[in-house]
Design a protein around this nucleic acid. Structure first.
Length: 462
DNA sequence: GTTGAGCGTT
């Protein structure tokens, strides 16, 4: 039977009532939801006049003598600091004009093994409405991996949440922006990469969803399900504005980024990131799996897969026509081998036996997702593997930059796709595209944090 | 049945 007990953060405060669970215990998360950082309860023993601690086990606070009684309990904080009265908000609101910012998923690190999604929801709801809560677990054992994700409805909630550490079920946890969001704002163009797609997302679903942000001119979903898609907008600004965001589509959290996210991995003028051979291969022909309604054919989408475009002016296609100038390739930075270079040149010149790619036969139809995987970058040369995932003639040449091509190949240098632009823009060649590796250089630039250490839970936990 | 820096099978 549920009832309520009175709790204060400090003697003299106005009591706040916390609900018990059915078994009469109080969840620590319930406590810490109202008293951030709180890790326990105590009360004054009327007989001795001294304070007594409340038993805590498995994240539950147990009533003394099986009865909470009518007394007022006092919240206990780790270091005799960090307590906060409900009256005084401990978090100075970073009230910026950031009100219009959008929420992103937040990773919660350092969760106790036992914490459930309910615990997380219970705890984090103190900051605002939650759209998503998940604890990553081992699929087999169901054992928590000790981290999870949350997503708030309001950006203010997110800000508040990230502005502090979190005591969850007896452990200090950190909330951060996931690494997957790195390099968010970049690559201005009209096509965005939609990662973490689920298989039940159709092109129509994506179109329907993204249309509310602006006119969608194309949706591309790789044929063998690969958990990502491309969405192209008529307005590049729309696409750009979505980059870096997380959206929830059909219950799944997808991540939106520029079509060649690895672009800013390297700097110094080199075009390190993705290599894409990509003319605007977006000529769409009927029969493809594209949704193409209302598509205006004058969107030349040249230069996909190209990254780190010099300057910010978007002028896709025209300036890259058949430009194989090595200066644009950033070769030095990527240690390309000759085989790959030759392959690329062959592609652009329409020779080289890349028949399966449909380049030599189809005049304008761009090959789709043509992928060339060299060995390790700069490594075993000659092992270029071509794996076009779509070869149908007339297939719309969605030139898919260098998005995740293979997560199994270590540091694959990949081609984007190749295609002759609708407007005659020739292929542009860029190199790069290491999807899986290279994550070590990222240094999450979040709000000032608390080191990276999670203090051990007070003994008695875990 | 253990563990404690990290980054999301679906």
């Amino acid at each position: 039977m549920i009832h309520y007990i009175k709790v204060v953060a400090e003697d003299g405060d106005e009591p706040l009532e916390l609900p018990t669970e059915e078994d009469g215990t109080i969840l620590l998360t319930t406590l810490s939801a109202q008293f951030p950082g709180s890790c326990g309860l105590k009360y004054r023993n009327p007989d001795s006049g001294t304070m007594r601690g409340i038993r805590l086990s498995d994240g539950r606070l147990y009533p003394p003598d099986n009865d909470w009684g009518k007394q007022v309990f006092v919240s206990v904080f780790p270091k005799a600091e960090g307590k906060s009265t409900p009256a005084s908000d401990p978090v100075p609101k970073p009230v910026k004009s950031s009100s219009r910012q959008k929420c992103s998923d937040l990773i919660v690190l350092g969760l106790p093994w036992k914490s459930t999604e309910d615990d997380l929801r219970n705890y984090f709801s103190q900051f605002g409405d939650l759209l998503m809560v998940q604890v990553k677990k081992d699929p087999k054992t169901g054992q928590s991996k000790g981290f999870g994700f949350v997503r708030f409805a309001e950006y203010e909630s997110q800000m508040k949440c990230m502005a502090q550490r979190h005591m969850i079920d007896g452990r200090w946890c950190d909330v951060r922006i996931p690494n997957s969001k790195e390099g968010a704002q970049q690559m201005m163009n009209r096509k965005v990469f939609v990662g973490r797609c689920t298989e039940d997302m159709t092109a129509e679903d994506l179109r329907a969803y993204f249309t509310k942000f602006g006119e969608v001119v194309d949706v591309f979903i790789p044929k063998p399900f690969r958990a990502f898609a491309f969405v192209s907008f008529a307005d590049p600004d729309i696409a750009q504005s979505l980059c870096g965001e997380d959206h929830i589509i059909k219950g799944a959290s997808v991540h939106i980024s520029g079509a060649a996210p690895k672009s800013n991995e390297k700097q110094g003028g080199g075009y390190g990131g993705g290599m894409g051979v990509g003319g605007g291969g977006d000529r769409r022909l009927a029969g493809s799996n594209h949704s193409h309604l209302g598509y205006s054919p004058n969107y030349s989408q040249g230069s996909w897969g190209h990254v780190a475009r010099p300057g910010s002016s978007s002028n896709p296609g025209s300036s890259y026509g058949n430009n194989l100038g090595l200066g644009n390739l950033g070769l030095g930075a990527l240690q390309l081998n000759h085989a790959m270079l030759a392959a690329a040149q062959a592609v652009l010149s329409g020779q080289g036996g890349w028949g399966p790619l449909g380049l030599t036969n189809q005049g304008g139809a761009g090959m789709q997702q043509g992928v060339v995987q060299g060995g390790q970058a700069g490594g075993q040369g000659g092992q270029a593997v071509i794996q076009p995932s779509m070869t149908g003639p007339g297939g719309s040449g969605a030139s898919n930059g260098d998005q995740p091509v293979s997560n199994t190949t270590p540091a694959p240098a990949t081609f984007g796709s190749v295609g002759n632009g609708t407007s005659g823009a020739g292929g542009f060649l860029g190199w790069g595209g290491t999807q899986a590796s290279d994550t070590t250089t990222h240094s999450p630039s979040q709000m000032a944090g608390w080191g990276s250490t999670h203090s051990k839970a007070p003994t008695g936990w875990n």
